[in-house]
């Protein structure tokens, strides 16, 4: 029998991220139960999260500059970006829809990028305060992260349905691809970030 410290890491134990088994093991050794390679912390978590977050931030620019769809009604209509789409929803009085699309396509992805950068910087600086707040931000990101896919699903549904020839048609535009890439990158970025790093800096203080 061994005496254990407060955390798995400081006790020389590793928690398997797939099956949750806690075993005395070392980095990269397979989990005795599910054979997943074990890691004390997610490998190169900060570097990977930085790279993915920066890529997402960069692609968010073309995702907003390029139009995502074109609504043609009675021969009239032009390609619209995400924000122009929200604006036209407001113009037609569809406030609740405008809010949903705005939150899912603008607030969620931008919020995720900002939260990730803040968490990364705070870990780099070894910030020892606001731990509960930072964990709350991390959880918020986990819960709402994938809701930005709404716009992509919406474009596929609308373009499939609205094919009424001269009366009305909706066509997808290139912005969708960029926006899809942003969604995927932010999801991967949130998953490569290891929340235990937030606690580690506080634990070192003891």
């Amino acid at each position: 029998m061994a005496i254990l410290d407060l955390t798995a890491k400081s006790s020389g134990l590793i928690r398997c991220h797939v099956c949750a088994l806690v075993t005395p093991s070392s980095e990269n050794h397979p989990c005795p139960r599910c054979a997943t390679p074990l890691h004390v912390r997610k490998p190169s978590s900060l570097q990977k999260t930085w790279a993915l977050t920066m890529a997402a931030a960069l692609l968010y620019i073309p995702a907003n500059i390029f139009p995502i769809m074109t609504v043609v009604q009675m021969g009239q209509g032009e390609p619209k970006t995400i924000l122009a789409g929200v604006a036209s929803l407001i113009e037609t009085g569809m406030w609740p829809l405008a809010m949903i699309v705005f939150i899912a396509s603008v607030v969620v992805p931008l919020g995720k990028i900002v939260i990730l950068i803040y968490l990364l910087v705070s870990v780099h600086w070894g910030l020892k305060t606001y731990i509960k707040e930072r964990i709350a931000l991390y959880r918020l990101m986990e819960v709402f992260g994938h809701w930005s896919m709404v716009d992509i699903f919406l474009v596929t549904l609308l373009t499939t349905l609205v094919k009424m020839g001269a009366l009305a048609t909706i066509e997808p535009n290139r912005g969708v691809s960029f926006f899809g890439a942003v969604v995927v990158l932010t999801i991967f970025a949130a998953r490569t970030f290891d929340p235990r790093l937030i606690w580690d800096s506080a634990h070192d203080q003891r």
Binding site: L6, T7, A8, S11, L13, R15, A20, V22, P195, W199
Partner: peptide, 8 residues
């Protein structure tokens, strides 16, 4: 071990 903070 906690998946978010590693506490045993």
């Amino acid at each position: 071990a906690c998946h978010e903070c590693d506490w045993l």
